[in-house]
Simulated scan of single mutants.
Amino acid sequence: MTGSSALPGIATARAYRREWLRPDITAGLVLTALLIPAGMGYAEAAGLPAYAGLYATIVPLLAYAVVGPSKILVLGPDSSLAPLIAAAVLPLAVANDPESALVFAGVLGVLVGVILLVGGFLRLGFVTELLSKPIRLGYLNAIALVVIVGQLP
């Protein structure tokens, strides 16, 4: 694996053109305006402090900018994960101690990341093809509707 294939963001930065700067800054500001409040809200819905959602929104985006293979993919927090994280973390956390819930959520995030890395190395992406295309499209359309309805107020 060459350096540019391991870190596609570096290759993109080297080939970056000045005329892309204004649209990229505009897109970044819009994305920030949408993702930061959503991330903080989802963190609170999962029983974590709001600042955890702030970090969980910003840090993965920066990491993806360096190692992500797509220049146009938009990443962000997902509301469907909040109840799953809450169900896994809150029973283990000490009552009225958001820091213990934060530690367990961090461990959960690292474990999920390790599982995804192992799945990537084992080339298990074909498993997504086991879900029918209408189910995958329906899920993606539902996410788009949730985002649109969430921004109406």
Rank of each mutant, 00 (worst) to 15 (best):
G3Q: 01
S4Y: 07
A6D: 06
I10F: 07
T12Y: 09
A13W: 02
Y16S: 06
R17G: 04
R18K: 08
R18C: 11
W20N: 02
W20R: 10
L21P: 10
R22H: 10
I25M: 14
I25Y: 15
T26K: 11
A27L: 03
A33E: 08
A38Y: 14
G39F: 06
Y42G: 06
E44S: 13
A45Q: 00
G47V: 07
A50R: 03
Y51W: 05
A52F: 13
A52S: 15
G53T: 10
G53D: 01
L54G: 08
Y55F: 09
L62W: 15
L62F: 13
A63H: 03
A65I: 02
V67T: 10
P69V: 00
L75H: 10
L75T: 09
P77H: 01
D78Q: 11
D78A: 13
D78I: 14
S80H: 14
L84I: 15
A87V: 06
A87M: 04
A87R: 13
A88L: 09
L90D: 05
L90I: 00
L90E: 14
P91S: 02
L92P: 12
A93E: 05
N96K: 04
D97G: 06
E99H: 08
E99K: 07
S100P: 01
L102V: 12
V103W: 10
F104K: 04
G109I: 08
V110P: 11
L111F: 09
V112A: 10
V114E: 05
I115S: 08
L116H: 04
V118A: 05
G119H: 14
F121N: 13
R123M: 09
R123C: 11
L124V: 11
V127M: 09
L130P: 06
K133I: 04
R136Y: 01
L137V: 10
L137H: 12
G138K: 09
L140S: 14
I148D: 06
V149C: 14
L152H: 14
